[in-house]
Each structure stands twice: as structure tokens, then as C-alpha cells.
Design a protein around this nucleic acid. Sequence first.
DNA 1: GGTGCGATTGCA
DNA 2: GCAATCGCACCA
Length: 190
Amino acid sequence: MNHRQRLRLQFYRRDALEVARDLLGRVLCRRVGPGRVLRGRIVEVEAYDGPADRASHAHRGRTPRNAPMFAAGGLAYVYRIYGVHHCLNAVTGDPSYPAAVLLRATEPPAAELSASGPGRLCRAFDVDRRLDGASLCGRTLWIEQGTPVPDREVRRTERIGVSYAGAWAAKRYRFIVRGHPAVSGPRRLR
DNA sequence: GGTGCGATTGCA
DNA sequence: GCAATCGCACCA
């Protein structure tokens, strides 16, 4: 069962854009009880790449909230947004360079609940601040190899909800499985 | 200690 | 179109 093999730490300790592209088709896994694991195939992600990226939480330096982004790749970075939802990121790269990949959607048939959009994804997988800083190679949260997505099915677009970020808002740091029904955001960006 | 707001979502 | 709702960044 090769596709069930867990991604290793080394997978995350690369450039955020590479990791983002490579996370498509992988399977997010969350243990929610004895013998009970939720799984969902990742179909939409966004990279937040380094201190210069104005859309990134790391842009204004290290703070208590974004501390996991300044760790070595392979951790979860979970934060609360709008006081209502949570967002789950995979921390990437080297400790000297804060970067992460936001997980925005998984394929519904593989997950127990619909998981289109970063907040809904966290709700579906029972992800909250308890998992902030947790390992992505641990017992309750991990990502499996799954089936990589070929280049012809990958589309790159600008990121969602970062219009304040100046020139960085236009950068095509979002990666999706082209036309997949579970992808979130406006129609023109599917 | 006070203030402003966001890597979103659901409902009017 | 906009309210919900709160942690946190920033300023004093």
C-alpha cells in the first residue's frame, strides 16, 4: 500500500512553492478516536513564502501567533481567523526562512464532511489551536503519499483574500486541481 | 490598557 | 451585502 505511506519530514523541508505544488493529491489524515481516521485528498493549497511576502503572517516578523512558521518544516501552524474559524498550514523549509502552505480544500468523497475552504476543512477534520505546532508526522495528524497530480491537471492562480498585499497579491502562489468540484473561491479561479 | 482588523463563512 | 466574534498586533 504505497499510497498509504506517510510523507517524511524531508518532504516539508523544501521551498514552500515546491511543497505546495507537491501537496496536491496527497491525503490529509486525522485520528479522531481509536481506530477512527478521517482522510481527504488535498485539491487546493496556497504558499506563504518568506518574510518579504506581504500576504504572510511572517511579514512583520516573529510573534507568538506565527512562531511555528519560524520552525523547521514538518509542523502544523493553526490560527483562528475572524474569531470564528481555524486555518491549517503545513510549515515548510528551514528555520531561518518563515514559510508555510495553507490547506484550503480536500476532496469530499474521501472525507467525512465537505471540506471546501480553509475554515470548513478545519471543522471537517476537527482541527483547532490544540494542533498548533503539532508534528505533521505524528499519531493524530499526518499526510500520506496518495496519488500525485500530473502537471496538466494543475492550475496556478493568485491567492484568495489577500488583496491588501500589494504586488504580492498578484503572485500565483495558489495551486489547485483544475476544475475540481471541491475547490473553493470564485468560479473564474477554478 | 485601548483600538482596529483579518490567509472566512453563512445567511439575508 | 454584511454580521459574527476574538486573538493578536500595534500604539500609548
